[in-house]
C-alpha cells in the first residue's frame, strides 16, 4: 500500500491534477484583479491596506507554482506552497462559515451568477471538502518525494 502511494506513476498524475487546478484558478483571477480584491475583502479577514497586494500576488503564485509542479521543477517546494495556500483557504472559509457569513469562494474569479445566501453557504461547505481533497493530493506528493529532500 505504502509502495503504491509513493509510486512515481501515481505522483506524476497527482502533480498534473493539482497543477492544472491551480494554474486554471490563477489565470481566472489574473484576468480580473479588482474582482478578486473584492472577494478577498468580503472575507473580512485581511486588513484593507493588504487586500490589493494579495489580489495581485496570490494568483501569480498559484500559476507559477502550478507550472513548476507540472514540469517537476522543485516539486516538493511547489507542493508545500500549494498545501499552505489550501490550508489558508480552508481556514478562511471555515471562519466565515462559523460566522454564517456567505462569501463567494473567489477560486476561479468573480462569480457571474447571483446566488442566495443559503446557496452560498452550501457552496462554501463543498469548497472546503474539495480543498481538503486537494490538500491530500499535495500531501501525497510530499510523502512520495520524501527521499528527494534527503539527497
Amino acid at each position: 500500500m505504502r509502495g503504491r502511494l509513493a509510486s512515481e506513476w501515481l505522483t506524476v498524475r497527482v502533480q498534473f491534477v493539482l497543477a492544472a487546478f491551480f494554474v486554471l484558478a490563477g489565470i481566472a483571477k489574473i484576468a480580473d484583479p479588482p474582482g478578486f480584491a473584492h472577494e478577498i475583502h468580503n472575507y473580512g479577514l485581511v486588513p484593507g491596506s493588504l487586500v490589493n497586494a494579495m489580489a495581485l500576488i496570490l494568483p501569480w503564485l498559484e500559476v507559477i507554482t502550478g507550472v513548476g509542479l507540472f514540469l517537476g521543477i522543485a516539486r516538493r517546494s511547489a507542493a508545500r506552497i500549494l498545501g499552505i495556500l489550501l490550508i489558508v483557504f480552508i481556514i478562511a472559509l471555515g471562519i466565515n462559515l462559523a460566522r454564517k457569513k456567505p462569501v463567494d469562494c473567489g477560486c476561479f474569479g468573480t462569480a457571474k451568477v447571483q446566488k442566495t445566501d443559503a446557496e452560498r453557504l452550501k457552496d462554501m461547505k463543498l469548497v472546503i471538502l474539495r480543498d481538503v481533497g486537494l490538500l491530500l493530493l499535495a500531501g501525497q506528493i510530499l510523502y512520495a518525494t520524501k527521499r528527494e529532500e534527503r539527497i
Partner: peptide
C-alpha cells in the same frame, strides 16, 4: 525554492 517562486510571482504581478 519557495522564495524563488514567491519572487517570480511578485515580479510577474508588478509587470502585469
Amino acid at each position: 525554492d519557495a522564495f524563488l517562486f514567491l519572487a517570480v510571482a511578485v515580479l510577474a504581478a508588478l509587470f502585469s
